[in-house]
Design a protein around this nucleic acid. Sequence first.
DNA 1: GAGGTAAACCCGTTGCTGCC
DNA 2: GGCAGCAACGGGTTTACCTC
Length: 318
Amino acid sequence: MNKAQRLLHILMTMQAHRKFNLKELTEEFGVSKRTILRDLQELSELGVPLYSELGVHGGYQLLRDRMLPPIHFSDKEAVALFLVAESLKGYPMLPFEAEVESALKKFYHYSPPSTKEKIEKLRSHVLFHVQERGLDTPYLTSLLEASLEGRIVTITYEAEKGTSERDIQPIGVYTASGLWYCPAYCFRSREHRLFRADRITALTVAEDQSRRIDPPGYDLRDWFTGRPSGETAELLIHLTRAGAVRAKSDPLLAEGLTVHADGRGCVRRAAAISDLSCLADTLLGYGAKAEVEAPALLREMLLQRANEIRELYAGAGG
DNA sequence: GAGGTAAACCCGTTGCTGCC
DNA sequence: GGCAGCAACGGGTTTACCTC
């Protein structure tokens, strides 16, 4: 039996037995322990999910649940998968980036030449442009994993107001305009808040997991459908014609937007109190194109910001 | 602590292949 | 045919870990 045949037989033996050790394999294949070890290492490097246990009852196990069965794709399905992959390439950071790269390599390697040809053509004719930000998000995968497992993590966050350390329970991650965001329940402010992944400079799993909200009862879909968490306020914003056009493509104002027959519009929905500050910053850019009727707190925030700007320029001019 | 197991080394042997 | 290079293999030793 040559090496290739032996590797194949070892793989079949592993699939037939839930657990095995070196001695059993050396007896079955009539080779030395050293050779079996080399074979197992080679199989592991090829992607076979092997798990070893030390000790008296130690041995090897094949993590069969972690290995997918062979799947057949049609030509169009294969090209479609690569199209999806291409759409992600513009992002400098992705969760499970190395795994995505490895999976695509395997997929491309085993694709027939005609499919490869279509994929290469696709690369020349389709481009998903993502705004380049050049910001590192080293904890993106950790945030995603924490949201999947409902873990509380301790983060160091660099906000505009300064650096803070806080415990959060992420509900997911999403990307917009080339940036990665992580909505999460913040145990310090006791409400859901939005964090920029690139502003997280340190992340560790929190020691105290007893506070975790399980089940969370609030997920990324709730976040996007605008179901607020925590204390809320009724929002009523009137928009000019130009303001309504702009609000249609504004993620903060599109929700709850109604455009009247004359082109003007209004935004009417519930908003979390914690979001008002962010809304005020956005509305400042609308100038007179948007007028806040409610809540009063948002009006005050806008006035305060406007006054700050006025003082700044009055001082510079005089 | 003893004994069983895997992991990680090192080194020597064997067989195949290509080159001169 | 002789030689070098390489891959595959085997044996030995030490270390780490686990169970009893």
